[in-house]
């Protein structure tokens, strides 16, 4: 699957990279959905023997191929939220020198990145690669509720129901982009939603 080229944007918007093998005794990989392909692209027996691999399928079927990589530990979690306690537990045991690989949607990478930073790993120990859906995790600036996997602009806040437009302004702490009321100056005039990058 070809990778999506995000258009050039403002300075708060994160820029994602391309995974590469790093040396080190301990590796944590979190792959969400098509992110599995990025792992398959770099996996070597030597690397995987030192890796804890967490896979969140989100409806994709890479489990068998990932299991076949024979990582030191393999876990398939039904959702990011469900896997979070486990991720935190792994990070708690973190040795300095742990290498982290995050791949999948921006929402997952952003959230996991902030977990990793919280335990004090330098951001140079984290690699990312976007794969799969270009949906965004959005914070409603009005009610503060988070709406996951937003694919269209404008969209309806899952919490307060306001119609929000999708900004590029991004907060690492919230791991979310900002959503702002689209019809505040003309109540009821909500444009037809279209894909965020259309």
């Amino acid at each position: 699957m070809s990778k999506f080229e995000f258009p050039k944007s403002i300075t708060s918007r994160p820029v994602w990279g391309t995974l590469e093998v790093r040396s080190g005794e301990h590796h944590l990989m979190i792959a969400e959905a098509e992110g599995a392909e990025a792992i398959l692209d770099i996996a070597t027996p030597d690397l995987m023997a030192k890796t804890h691999l967490i896979y969140i399928p989100k409806g994709t079927g890479y489990a068998e191929r990932l299991r076949a990589l024979n990582s030191a530990q393999f876990y398939e979690g039904p959702s990011y939220e469900a896997s979070l306690q486990r991720i935190r537990r792994v990070l708690e045991d973190t040795h300095m020198g742990l290498q982290v690989y995050l791949t999948g949607t921006e929402g997952m990478m952003g959230q996991a990145m902030s977990e990793v930073m919280t335990v004090g790993l330098p951001h140079t120990a984290i690699q990312t690669e976007h794969r799969g859906s270009v949906a965004r995790r959005m914070q409603c600036v009005h009610c503060k509720g988070i709406t996951e996997d937003v694919e269209v602009d404008p969209f309806v806040c899952a919490h307060c129901g306001l119609n929000l437009f999708v900004r590029d302004h991004y907060s690492r702490r919230h791991a979310a982009y900002q959503g702002v009321c689209v019809d505040a100056e003309d109540h009821g005039n909500v444009p037809e939603p279209k894909g965020i990058y259309e």
Binding site: I10, S12, R172
Partner: peptide, 21 residues
């Protein structure tokens, strides 16, 4: 929004400003 911008660095919180960057 402070709640949104808290924790950002100088370049990040100024991201939405046109031209100045």
């Amino acid at each position: 929004s402070l709640d949104f911008d808290i924790g950002m660095n100088f370049f990040e919180w100024h991201a939405p400003v046109p031209k100045a960057h």
